[in-house]
Amino acid sequence: MNDGPQIFHIADTAHRNAFELLPWYVNGTLSAAETASVAEHLKVCLRCQHELAQLSILNDVIGADDGALTLEPTMMRAHGLIDAYERDHGSNQRWGIFRSLWRRPTRTSAVLAMSLASVVVVALLLLKFDGSSNADFTTLANATSKSPAYELTIIFEAQATHESVRELLIDIQAEIVHGPSDEGGLVVAVPRSDADKVIAFLADSPIVSSFAVPERIPSR
């Protein structure tokens, strides 16, 4: 290390800031202002100059390509994993009928203006094919085998988008029993063991207008 008298003291703010940012100065991702400030400091700080030299070598060594890899067989195994996943969770392909909606270049007024009825219909059709889990809730796979279902009716706010409804249903691990009704109500089943958590979740949700529990809340 160079430790001559012209080196900035470690407590110097300019030095500390520049020293800290050097790795990203090297990879070129700092903002223009940060880059200018580091460059300015480098003119007067030997310690940072030395550090920059080291980090540049590190950048070259780490950034070097590792050579041949075997993409195709690895990707075939990925397809195998997806096949197994789809067998367990239902086919993602069934989303296909909604692709025209997803791909529409508007992200947009058309989608946002969809009626609540279509929101819920989309949610109804899509929900079953997503196996996402939420750590706070029992997974659907466990739920069907271990916990009897608890049914409740959810009415969504008019501004709820199909995406937000779908996410909510995934979050609470709900399966749609029937609906939507004329009023936009959706009867869903959740694992009985999760009922209290689901009710608390729905009460906090900005897209839920109201919900009804048809039977007493089970105690946990």
Binding site: H79, S91, W95, F98, W102, R103
Partner: peptide, 8 residues
């Protein structure tokens, strides 16, 4: 988005 639609 396409992957969400099941596009391999």
């Amino acid at each position: 988005r396409c992957i969400a639609g099941g596009d391999r």
